[in-house]
């Protein structure tokens, strides 16, 4: 049974400019001990979906227009605030994009870590402190008992992200959602943080949702990958499916846009055009205007799901037969 099962999640923002359908019918499930990668260009609704799960979106302007998110037989989307608070930071922890702004600059690291334990487990501050120090050691912070009494500004970006990860480890959260955990970091630090997440995931059997706009980041760590475009899921599959058998033209474009070691001096490919305006009306496939294989029917009606197998599906008019036909 999946640990988290999200069905048909819809998150809209009601702004003066119009309604933004940030997440428009997202379904996925997360198995225990697995890492699920969620990829898509910036603005495709990844953060909105994750924040909606934990009730972190400001409402208004956000409004959840439907769907379910089952976690231990409870629907996160309609849980009372008190109950949801018991889950946040405890059973489901979240790591955010910008470690420079995600930690409170006015409080010591020790305060920001121990409060998680005193809130959720009611342990003494002393006990919480020693567990917090242990968590910092787990994420590779040297001299943790000295570091913990410092303030965030005394840490580098990479170190702060380690602190955020340590916070997520404190309560042995069943699910850790990392929203672009490396986007704000230098490339070398990015690799270290991903490696840290990977080793922690293997060591503790964490269930991880790793959100990123960079397919390269999820390659080495994910079991399954969701590809989102303009608020919709357009392809899902195992890492091998996505990297070796990409089926949606958008996924193919994302893969081509990855820098590759064997083509160092070549021009980097970029998907032509830009994502549609967030307030635009939806008709047909929203990737159609940028799609190299676009057909007239792509601009109207509902786009069907094509199931290659149990795990691998994509949202496109180009069925496997059509693709084979074109290849031949």
């Amino acid at each position: 049974m999946p640990l988290l099962q999200v069905e048909d999640l819809r998150v809209f923002f009601h702004t003066y400019a119009g309604v933004i359908r940030a997440v428009d019918g997202l379904s996925f499930s997360l198995e225990p001990g697995q890492c699920l990668g969620v990829v898509g260009e910036s603005g495709s609704g990844k953060s909105a979906a994750m924040m909606a799960l934990l009730g972190l979106l400001p409402q208004p302007p956000a409004k959840i227009h439907g769907g379910r998110a089952l976690f231990h037989h409870q629907d996160l989307l309609c849980l009372p605030k008190r109950e949801l608070r018991k889950i946040r930071g405890n059973k489901i922890a979240m790591i955010f994009q910008d470690p420079m702004t995600s930690l409170n600059p006015y409080l010591r690291i020790s305060t920001q870590m121990t409060e998680i334990l005193t809130t959720h487990e009611g342990v003494s501050t002393k006990n919480a402190l020693s567990r917090a120090i242990a968590a910092l050691e787990q994420v590779g912070i040297a001299d943790a008992s000295r570091a913990i009494v410092q303030y965030p500004h005394q840490f580098s970006g990479g170190m702060r992200q380690r602190v955020m990860i340590a916070m997520a480890l404190l309560t042995k959260a069943e699910i850790i959602i990392a929203d672009e955990p490396t986007t704000a970091l230098d490339v070398t630090i990015q690799a270290q943080i991903i490696e840290l997440l990977r080793s922690l995931q293997q060591r503790y059997g964490l269930s991880l949702i790793l959100v990123t706009h960079d397919l390269g980041v999820v390659a080495g760590i994910s079991d399954h990958i969701l590809v989102m475009y303009n608020g919709r899921l357009v392809e899902r599959g195992t890492v091998e499916d996505i990297f070796y058998r990409p089926s949606h033209p958008y996924t193919e474009g994302l893969l081509q846009a990855l820098p590759r070691v064997d083509q160092q001096h070549q021009h980097l490919y970029a998907i032509p055009g830009a994502p549609p305006l967030p307030t635009a009306q939806r008709q047909g496939c929203s990737f159609a205007p940028r799609c190299p294989q676009v057909m007239p029917m792509c601009y109207e009606g509902e786009v069907p799901w094509v199931a290659i197998n149990q795990q691998h599906q994509y949202l496109c008019h180009l069925t496997t037969e059509l693709k084979e036909g074109a290849a031949r």
């Binding site: 934990l54 972190l56 608070r85 018991k86 889950i87 946040r88 930071g89 405890n90 922890a93 979240m94 955010f96 910008d98 702004t101 995600s102 930690l103 409170n104 600059p105 006015y106 409080l107 305060t111 409060e115 998680i116 809130t119 959720h120 955020m164 916070m167």
Partner: peptide
């Protein structure tokens, strides 16, 4: 409005704790 208040919410802290501990000093 700051990001770290969102972090505090994501930790499951109550509104009172967020106000008194995380917001007031700044």
């Amino acid at each position: 409005r700051q990001d770290f208040i969102r972090t505090a919410k994501a930790k499951g802290l109550s509104n009172t704790v967020i106000m008194l501990r995380h917001t007031l000093k700044g």
